[in-house]
Design a protein around this nucleic acid. Structure first.
Lengths: 327, 327
DNA sequence: CTGAAAGCGCTTACAG
DNA sequence: CTGAAAGCGCTTACAG
């Protein structure tokens, strides 16, 4: 391995000068050229560990994800990865397998690794998180959830819920089931539902029942038959595309046609909602874009730049075939 | 930040002794207890950079993935992550976005970061890869592809192709389309097809046509209609579940019922194949298990243990509703 | 603009 | 079993 001392010797200068060259200190044109040549010729690259040890900082951004096998996670990570690459930062991904304690451990562990900043694909922010961030003393960007003490990138959960609600009413649905998730997840469990509620509130002759299920497909598959039997809604508005996928399967298994016998909507805009039959009408979020924004923002924070507490990504209602027009 | 010198001073011993405690050198019981207490009380943890700088090695395993948004990648990563965590190794994920050159760059970049070993979720191994591995001088495990110069974990592509072929014949299909992928991908493009070929070879009155498409759903959606129109196969055997998903959508869009008008099979065993309607019959691979094996094997290699060149994961034909029984 | 020196937080022979 | 010393490959005041 060639070191800075080797380069210095070959170039006939001191290590300090080479270091200055590397870090953009002032240097004469002649020596600059000389050093450049020697570095190229020996394909030298500085030892990151020595740099970090001395400079006490890194250009590593840690990203904590709740799970690896989700469309939202994958897309967000792709966005972060792309943007960080452009920014010449390194990405370290830390998986917490949907375990909040592990998530908090991951914060400490990233801090110990001296990452320059942390991006957290958040689900729920507890006091444990806050305490970890406080101790870590590292810039943080939340993606997907909002918190007044932290910077965040969030999706327009409320607005998309509202617009989707209006859409459903406009299609003539008056007996509606809303299949949501735990309110511990503020964005998904509360905001989407609140937006939807606002849209249907005051609509005459309209029945809306609210239910809760888990985030996975199987959970929805089990939940939906009861809902149908008990309330016979004309539509089930699902808080995520995964839930909608489960509902679709459940409907098929009950021999119901979608959308003739039962309409369905989702949130997320996962690629797969275009491939099912029928395609699922959904509120599409731009996860990759959110990832890019998070990456840009975290580097701003790392560089001490000012930043608004909150940024929004756009959304779009994608109309496909899973909602029947009752009018 | 508390350092080894602090601990030494508080405990009233030398840094060497603390270091020995940390690295399992011989030490008296009394000092061991003393140091332990002091370390706990000050929640000290060694600076990784200093350790790596001195010891010239890390416990980081680099994993290179071709893409982040694929079921196989996610599951394999989950397996690697779980296992590496048990083994107290750190995981760094490097995404090459399906770009072979970037993949090779990633090898060099991981080598520069002094990772202890590399796991490559491989698609195609070029001379560029080999050269990079040679220069890096780091243990490598391939997942999903085989190469005689490298260690690998591979799925039973040939065997599963064979068994699926036999299954299809047993269901009475005699006019078959096989929709494969590029032969550059030896495992997916060649092995699966060869296994299938072997199974149908010599079967009387049987027509098999072979086609090629890309790995994504859209590609298959475009390709399938032509195939149906020109050859009217009773079944399309797809080289991946994604292709099967595309074929299913294409069939629906042509107004064909699956499996009555057209049967379908896939490879992979993605969760989503259970959710579609009908569920897709597929050769399921155990990606998570492969990931765990890769993690175990790479640490063996890192520790200088002997290892066979190749390990296989199991597979299973999952019979669902997408194949009609013609007999 | 340039160099000598100190030091970042560890580990590892070498003595004792 | 324990400690003093050297050194890993950098960076950063401090002089000149």
């Amino acid at each position: 391995m060639v070191t800075i001392a080797d380069i210095a010797k070959i170039a006939g200068v001191s290590k300090s000068t080479v270091s200055r060259y590397l870090n953009g200190g002032s240097i004469s044109d002649a020596t600059r050229k000389k050093i450049e040549r020697v570095i190229d010729a020996n394909s030298y690259s500085p030892n990151k560990f020595a740099q970090s040890l001395k400079a006490k900082k890194t250009n590593i951004i840690g990203t904590i994800v709740p799970r690896l096998d989700s469309y939202a996670t994958s897309q967000t990570l792709i966005g972060i990865d792309e943007q960080l690459r452009e920014l010449d930062c390194q990405l370290v991904i830390s998986n917490s397998s949907q375990d909040l304690n592990r998530e908090i451990e991951n914060i400490y562990s990233l801090a110990k690794q001296k990452v320059a900043g942390i991006i957290l694909l958040a689900t729920e922010i507890t006091d444990g998180h806050l305490e970890a961030f406080r101790q870590a003393q590292i810039p943080v960007i939340l993606v997907g959830q909002q918190h007044d003490q932290l910077h965040s990138i969030i999706h327009k959960d409320y607005e998309s819920g509202y617009e989707l609600g209006k859409y459903v009413l406009q299609k003539g649905h008056r007996n509606i089931a809303y299949l949501g998730v735990t309110e511990k997840d503020i964005a998904v469990g509360i905001k989407r539902k609140e937006g939807f509620k606002k849209a249907v509130e005051g609509q005459p002759d309209t029945l809306v029942h609210y239910f809760e299920t888990s985030f996975n497909i199987k959970g929805a598959m089990e939940r939906v038959p009861e809902i149908i039997e008990e309330y016979q809604p004309s539509i089930i508005v699902c808080a995520t595309d995964n839930i909608a996928l489960g509902a679709l399967k459940a409907a098929y298994m009950k021999g119901l046609r979608v959308p003739e016998d039962l309409s369905l909507t989702g949130f997320g805009g996962y690629d797969i909602t275009e491939i099912t039959y029928p395609g699922i009408t959904t509120a599409k979020f731009y996860y990759k874009e959110a990832g890019r924004m998070a990456a840009k923002d975290i580097t701003k924070l790392v560089n001490g730049e000012e930043l608004g507490k909150i940024s929004f990504t756009k959304y779009e209602i994608i109309e496909r075939e899973s909602v029947d027009n009752l009018l």
